[in-house]
C-alpha cells in the first residue's frame, strides 16, 4: 500500500525531532521503500550533529537498493564539521526526484532547515516529527509538550504530522510499544497534530499485522498505519561479516 503522504510522482519528506528519536533509521527505510515505487529517490544526509551513525556510512549498501545518497564533500564526510551538501538543492529542484531529508537531532540539528525552507514549501514537503517516548525529555505528555514547543519554535519548518517510534531497541515488546503509543496518542490529541504512522522492527510488526512482513513495508494493522522497518544500525558485536564498520 502507498499512504496518502507519498502520493504524486516524487514526494519530499523531512524528518525532524529530538536526538535519538529514530530519524536516520526511518530515513533509510523510507528511502529504500520509495526506491521501488518512484523513478528517482535521493536521500539527503543533513545531519550536522551526529559524529558516527549517519546515512553516509551506509552509502554503498543503500545505493545498491536504488537510492542516491547525498552527503557533504568526501574530504570532510568522516569529520564533525557541520557542512551541507550543495547537491541537496539540486535534488530539491528536480521535480522528478523523490527526496528524503535526514536532519540531525535536537536544536542544533534543525539549523539547516532554514536554508531548505523555500524549496520545501514549493514542493509541499511532508515534515514528520519523529517521537520515541522512551527517550529522555520525551517520555510524558508534559515533557513532549515542552520539547515539541521548543523544537517547533526553533525549526524553520512546521511539522505536518507526527511519526510514532516507541521503542527501547531490541528489547521492545508489544506491551512496551503499546504503552509508548498511548503517550504519543494522548499528545497528538492534545496538540491536534495527527500521527501519520508508527514504526516497528519487522519482528514486532508481524505481531501487529498478524502476518509476515517484508520490511520496509506499510500496512494497516492492529495499531493503525505502520511501517515495518529493518534495522541498519547493528551493534558492533553483531556486525559479523559486514566488516566495513
Amino acid at each position: 500500500m502507498i499512504p496518502s503522504f507519498f502520493s504524486g510522482p516524487a514526494p519530499v519528506t523531512f524528518l525532524i525531532g529530538g536526538a535519538g528519536a529514530g530519524k536516520t533509521e526511518l530515513s533509510l527505510n523510507l528511502a529504500t521503500w520509495e526506491a521501488s515505487r518512484f523513478k528517482q529517490v535521493s536521500l539527503v544526509d543533513l545531519d550536522i550533529v551526529n559524529p558516527f551513525f549517519r546515512v553516509r556510512k551506509l552509502k554503498d549498501q543503500i545505493e545498491k537498493l536504488g537510492v542516491h545518497i547525498i552527503f557533504p564533500d568526501l574530504r570532510v564526510a568522516s569529520g564533525d564539521i557541520p557542512g551541507l551538501p550543495g547537491a541537496a538543492w539540486g535534488a530539491m529542484e528536480n521535480l522528478e526526484t523523490a527526496v528524503v531529508c535526514d536532519i540531525g537531532g535536537g536544536e542544533p540539528g534543525l539549523r539547516p532547515l532554514g536554508r531548505m525552507k523555500d524549496h520545501a514549501d514549493q514542493r509541499q514537503a511532508n515534515v514528520f516529527f519523529v517521537i520515541n517516548p522512551y527517550r529522555p525529555g520525551f517520555s510524558t505528555v508534559a515533557e513532549l509538550e515542552k520539547s515539541y514547543s521548543l523544537l517547533s519554535e526553533l525549526s524553520a519548518m512546521k511539522a505536518t504530522c507526527l511519526v510514532a517510534n516507541p521503542n527501547i531497541s531490541g528489547e521492545t515488546s508489544p506491551e512496551i510499544f503499546r504503552e509508548g503509543m498511548a503517550v504519543i496518542r494522548e499528545f497528538s490529541q492534545h496538540k491536534k497534530v495527527k500521527i501519520a504512522f508508527s514504526i516497528a522492527d519487522a519482528g514486532l510488526a508481524e505481531i501487529f499485522k498478524s502476518a509476515p512482513v517484508k520490511a520496509p513495508e506499510f500496512f494497516d494493522g492492529s495499531e493503525g498505519l505502520m511501517l515495518a522497518i529493518r534495522r541498519y544500525w547493528d551493534v558492533p558485536w553483531q556486525f559479523g561479516d559486514n566488516a566495513n564498520h
Binding site: G20, R135, P136, S139, I168, S169
Partner: peptide
C-alpha cells in the same frame, strides 16, 4: 523505573 533508551554519553550524565 521503566527502561529508557539512552546514548552512553547521556547515561553517564544522568547517572
Amino acid at each position: 523505573m521503566a527502561k529508557v533508551l539512552m546514548k552512553g554519553n547521556e547515561a553517564i550524565g544522568e547517572a
